[in-house]
Simulated assay, not measured.
Amino acid sequence: MEYFVAPHSIVRRIWGTADTVLFVFAGAAAEFALNKAVDWLYFTGRLPADPLGRLFSTVDYARRIVFADRAGAERAIDTIAAIHAAVEAKRGRTIPDWAYRDVLFMLIAYSMRAFEMLERPLTAPEREEIVEVFGRVGQRMGIPGLPRSYAAWQAARAQHLAEDLAPSHHTTDLYRQYRRHLGAPRYWLLRGVQGMVVPPLVRAMLGLSKGTWLQPALSLYRDTKQFALSQWAKNALLPTEYQGRIRALDNEPVALAPTGCPYSGTRTHHAK
């Protein structure tokens, strides 16, 4: 069977572990709030209404791509493209190419950062592989101007951070929704994790600390990942109703059921 992502790929290891997936989306949740195209995530109202549900919908799509065979992964990518096209038609505007690239760049950046925080430094070939895999996702979606190497991605990522981020009233509102849905203790834990994983510019724009107060807990967490303490720590990040979905992140998906998308919140059963 031909896979979109090779069975022994570092990308599968990253996206097959709840620890790293949660750290990836802690970082992405911070940077999304600053992106100049965040208004697209507000257009349907789905993201502010249910930010945690949208997070898991995005995770579901990413994992469908990473763990499916090539045909299944391509169907999932085509579904994402179709959903975005429908939102564009409804709004009467086109999502800019740079916004699509920004999302891919975030997934690349935080996949690397989360893995290195929780596991070990990545090798040069592993970095190239992560860029290549997400580049193929973007190519399937028809996104132009994608970098083809880690060095090219680094340059494009730096340009994105300099040009495409700015605090707005959406930033303030999205963080208000994070706090409302998480509760105060989990919200401050989220901000601590975000401060550890995001780039300095993002940290400064959001007024995040460096999360140094979490470093001792992170060290203990790495040393006890195989024990019950690790699951307790993962459960501490999100409310009780999501604990089953958190546990499921440690397993390869067994079914590629249709799911939602952060832009639409719809359930799509086929690609366009």
Rank of each mutant, 00 (worst) to 15 (best):
K210S: 14
R63D: 13
H8T: 14
Y61F: 11
A81P: 00
L201C: 02
M106W: 14
E31W: 03
A73I: 08
G207R: 02
A29R: 06
A62S: 10
L52A: 00
L118Q: 08
M117F: 10
G195L: 04
P216D: 03
V24R: 04
C261M: 11
H181E: 11
R113V: 14
P48T: 09
R91N: 10
D250P: 08
R113Q: 15
V59C: 01
P262M: 11
R180T: 12
R140I: 14
Y3W: 11
T240V: 13
R267S: 08
R120Y: 07
W40P: 06
H269L: 10
R180I: 05
Q215Y: 13
R91M: 11
Q231M: 11
Y100T: 01
T20R: 13
R64V: 02
Y175C: 01
L229R: 02
T212W: 15
I143G: 02
T240H: 12
V11Q: 08
S209Q: 06
A33Q: 03
V38K: 04
A217M: 12
A18W: 00
M117Y: 07
L256K: 08
M112G: 15
I10A: 07
L249T: 01
A99W: 00
L118P: 08
L122C: 07
T266P: 01
P125R: 08
S230T: 02
K90D: 13
E116S: 09
G142C: 00
K272M: 07
R245E: 14
R101G: 02
V66P: 12
G138H: 02
A158W: 02
R101M: 01
Y61C: 05
F227K: 10
A30D: 00
L165K: 01
I83N: 11
